[in-house]
């Protein structure tokens, strides 16, 4: 067995039966102190993990091992207090020591994304968490197309002041609608600017 394999086995043995949050801390500290591997600077993509903020002192440890592709037990839940099995421990140890074994971060997960325009046909194909209608009241002719799904009506001004007013999770899928696409585009860029990563806009005409 070569030196590296022995190191993997040794590290793996340290991790078995420990909670994932503790393994994340252990691995992150080793990366920093022993292997001198720097942190990922933008950790916002890790907030896709629903339980990321459950353990306030673990946030950066979990975010780093998640974004580096060392620990990815699930794509949306980390499972902070679950115990690491023998199999998982070996995988984590390998990914820690062999960079080519890591799951590379998807390009689309990195940084903020510009809102995208969707045609009315595309809108019906997307499963959205929030459908937001920013048309002013006097423009709100209830067309059948709009009535098919439950669009939440808010004023453009109010929405742009606080895009968190309806959705708090920046990974929520949001589609914004207006008459001709001007206002919805503006609202969508307000949402993207405060951190929302999956915002689309559309128009009726």
């Amino acid at each position: 067995m070569c030196e590296l394999e022995r190191e993997v086995q040794k590290l793996s043995a340290e991790l078995v039966g420990t909670t994932r949050q503790n393994v994340a801390r252990l691995i992150h500290e080793k990366l920093l102190l022993v292997y001198k591997e720097g942190d990922e600077q933008d950790i916002s993509a890790a907030s896709v993990l629903k339980d990321l903020y459950d353990c306030r002192i673990c946030v950066n440890h979990v975010a780093q091992v998640f974004l580096k592709g060392i620990m990815r037990p699930g794509e949306t839940v980390f499972g902070m207090r679950e115990l690491v099995s023998e199999e998982e421990a070996l995988l984590i140890a390998e990914r820690t020591l062999k960079r080519d074994r890591r799951i590379p971060q998807k390009q689309e997960d990195k940084g903020a994304k510009e809102p995208m325009f969707l045609s009315w046909e595309q809108v019906s194909e997307i499963e959205a968490d929030y459908l937001i209608d920013v048309r002013p009241m006097d423009e709100r002719v209830e067309e059948e197309a709009v009535r098919e799904r439950a669009w939440t009506r808010v004023s453009l001004e109010e929405y742009c002041r606080n895009p968190f007013m309806l959705a708090m999770d920046i990974h929520a899928v949001i589609i914004i609608l207006c008459e001709n696409g001007t206002r919805s585009k503006l609202a969508a860029s307000c949402a993207a600017n405060v951190g929302f990563r999956n915002v689309y806009y559309t128009r009726l005409q």
Binding site: D39, S47, R56, N60, G195
Partner: peptide, 22 residues
């Protein structure tokens, strides 16, 4: 919740942000 989750240590200043989605 906290103003930073990336606190420092002896020799490391930690990391703070101007804006964030949380």
């Amino acid at each position: 919740n906290d103003i930073t989750f990336r606190v420092g240590s002896d020799g490391n200043a930690g990391f703070g942000a101007w804006k964030d989605g949380y």
